[in-house]
């Protein structure tokens, strides 16, 4: 294996042309997989030195542009009131543990597309855009289209996730992320990200290989529980050693109810 740490995106694109080359961001997923012998890339292209991948900026349209190399800790530390970014900040706070949050990046999480990861669920709920770039240019892909399957995304060879764009969400809406995991800090068994005002928009994780998006859900308890029951019945939740599909179906209505209830508290505040 060889290792390169280019200082610019252009150099990175070139480095990624090589056979079986991969980006290295925080390494919090990639190095773990390498240590377990699950992957052994021929080349690692570290994104650590690329300034263009850093920084969090407010865009003219009110959305927040989060550079791909922004760490979970940096997102968790955001104090924002707009529902979209607030949802991301809340989500980042429940990803793993402090040491992982200190170096794991939003770009890495998005590119990795672990079906149990937290950011993808929140990004789908927030109607975020994933900005990806390569030598041939930049595209912006809606989060709901970006995640394609288990560890599968719309990224093409030698494309880099450069940023995530998070729209503010409806005026006065609140946000919440509800995560169920076997022990604290662990990957989710099931999770619900909610942006809620008069109606709720949801991202739901654990019920398909990619997050499911629901929109225009009524915010009464009955409507939420009903939406949960309907989704539980129609989806194919993961069925694994961490939890059965039946359990995931069983808790979904309540998770949705809780996420939206918490979001609405934020909305009123």
């Amino acid at each position: 294996m060889d290792y390169l740490a280019p200082a610019t995106l252009d150099d990175a694109y070139r480095a990624l042309e090589a056979e079986d080359a991969r980006c290295l961001a925080g390494g919090q997923s990639l190095v773990a997989m390498m240590n377990l012998g699950l992957v052994s890339p021929a080349r690692l292209v570290s994104l650590r030195r690329i300034e263009a991948l850093r920084g969090i900026d407010l865009q003219p349209d009110g959305s927040l542009r989060i550079g791909a190399m922004t760490t979970h800790a940096e997102v968790a530390a955001l104090t924002v009131s707009a529902a979209g970014p607030a949802l991301l900040a809340q989500t980042a706070r429940v990803v793993a543990y402090p040491a992982v949050r200190a170096w794991g990046t939003i770009g890495g999480s998005v590119a990795h597309a672990d079906p149990a990861a937290d950011y993808p669920v929140a990004l789908v709920a927030a109607d975020a855009l994933i900005e990806v770039s390569s030598a041939s240019g930049t595209r912006r892909i809606a989060a709901r289209d970006f995640f394609r399957g288990l560890f599968e995304t719309a990224l093409e060879k030698a494309e880099i996730v450069t940023a995530v764009l998070v729209p503010p969400g409806a005026q006065g809406a609140g946000a919440a992320y509800e995560k169920l995991s076997p022990v604290a800090g662990d990957f989710a068994i099931a999770s619900v990200a909610a942006i809620a005002g008069r109606t709720a928009r949801l991202g739901v994780g654990g019920y398909a290989t990619t997050p499911i998006r629901l929109e225009g859900i009524g915010v009464s308890d009955d409507a939420l529980l009903e939406a949960g029951r309907a989704l539980a019945a129609s989806s194919e939740p993961s069925d694994d050693h961490r939890a059965s599909a039946a359990y995931r179906r069983r808790v979904l209505p309540e998770l949705i109810r809780r996420a939206v209830r918490t979001a609405l508290i934020g909305a009123r505040a």
Partner: peptide, 8 residues
């Protein structure tokens, strides 16, 4: 173990 699923 008394997992959440078994409890429910």
């Amino acid at each position: 173990p008394m997992t959440p699923e078994r409890v429910l």
